[in-house]
C-alpha cells in the first residue's frame, strides 16, 4: 500500500477525516516553502499537495492561477521546487503530493523526475491534464519510485469512466465536486452524496472531495460521505494574507473525532 493511502486510512481509522491543504510552491518566494510545510504539518494535516507553477494551468481557477503567475515571476521552476524540498526532506513527516501539469515533467525527463521527486519526499502526484488513457507515459517510472498516481473523477464522468478511473487511482481518489475549474464556490451541486457513493462502490481507496471547499462548514458537510477534503484556493489566499487562524479552523473541522 502506498504511504499516501496509509496516511489517509490511519486518519480515518481514528474517526477523523483526511485534510490535505494545497499550496503553490514559490508563491511569496521558495524560502517560504520550508516554514509553510512544517507549520501545516504541525497543525496535523494528513498530507500536503504542493502545486508547481506552470504557464498554461488549464485546470486552475483565478486564485491559484494568479499564485502560479507570482511564483513563475520570481523564478520558481519544477527543478528548483524539487531541490528546495530535498534540502529539508528529513523534516517532512507527512506525505507530499505534487500537483503539476505534464509538460514540465516531460521537459525534466520522466525517469529523472521520478527519482528526484522520491528523494524530495513526494509520495503521490496529480497530473490534471493527463487523461487515464495516456498514463503509460509516466506510470512505470512513478511506480518504480513509489509515487502514487492520483486520478480525478468528475461529475461529468460516465459510470464506465468512473469505474475505470476509480480502479486505477492510487493513494486516494480525487473527486471533483463542481463542474469546472478550481476556486471557492458558495454552494454545491445536489446529488453529490449519491455521486460519492457511486465512486466508492468500485474501490476501497479513500475518496477525497476537492474543488471549491472554502469554509469549515464545507469541510464538515463532506464528512458524512467522503474520507476527507482537499482545500486549495482558500489556503493559498490565507497564506498570502498570513492568516493562519483561518487555516487552523479549516484543519480543525476535519478532526471529527479527536477534537470536540
Amino acid at each position: 500500500m502506498s504511504q499516501l493511502k496509509e496516511a489517509i486510512l490511519s486518519t480515518t481509522a481514528k474517526g477523523d477525516k483526511a485534510f490535505i491543504p494545497y499550496i503553490m510552491a514559490g508563491d511569496g518566494g521558495l524560502e517560504k516553502l520550508q516554514p509553510t510545510i512544517l507549520k501545516l504539518q504541525e497543525l496535523g494535516v494528513t498530507a500536503i499537495e504542493v502545486g508547481i507553477p506552470f504557464t498554461d494551468p488549464v485546470a486552475d481557477g483565478p486564485t491559484i492561477e494568479r499564485a502560479g503567475e507570482r511564483a513563475l515571476a520570481n523564478g520558481t521552476t519544477l527543478r528548483k521546487v524539487i531541490e528546495t524540498l530535498t534540502s529539508f526532506s528529513e523534516h517532512i513527516k507527512v506525505p507530499l503530493v505534487a500537483m503539476t501539469y505534464l509538460n514540465p515533467i516531460l521537459a525534466y525527463g520522466i525517469e529523472k523526475f521520478s527519482e528526484d521527486a522520491k528523494l524530495a519526499g513526494i509520495k503521490g502526484i496529480i497530473i490534471p491534464d493527463m487523461p487515464l488513457e495516456e498514463r503509460d507515459i509516466v506510470y512505470t517510472a512513478l511506480k518504480a519510485n513509489d509515487i502514487a498516481l492520483v486520478q480525478l473523477v468528475s461529475l461529468t464522468s460516465t459510470p464506465e469512466r468512473i469505474e475505470r478511473l476509480t480502479k486505477a487511482s492510487e493513494g486516494f481518489i480525487y473527486a471533483v465536486t463542481v463542474n469546472g475549474i478550481t476556486g471557492a464556490r458558495s454552494s454545491f451541486a445536489s446529488k453529490l452524496e449519491e455521486h460519492f457513493k457511486k465512486i466508492q462502490e468500485y474501490s476501497d481507496t479513500p475518496v477525497l472531495a476537492g474543488f471549491g471547499i472554502s469554509t469549515p462548514e464545507h469541510v464538515k458537510s463532506f464528512s458524512d460521505f467522503s474520507s476527507g477534503v482537499i482545500v486549495g484556493s482558500k489556503i493559498v489566499d490565507s497564506l498570502v494574507a498570513n492568516d493562519w487562524a483561518t487555516i487552523e479552523e479549516l484543519v480543525k473541522a476535519s478532526k471529527v473525532a479527536t477534537v470536540k
Binding site: 504557464t55 488549464v58 521552476t77 527543478r79 509538460n103
Partner: peptide, 19 residues
Amino acid sequence: PAVFHGFKSYVLQDEEGNL
C-alpha cells in the same frame, strides 16, 4: 515537441517546459 493547451505538438518552450 510538448504537451500544451490540451494536445501534443511542437511548441516554443524553455528548458523547464514553460511557454
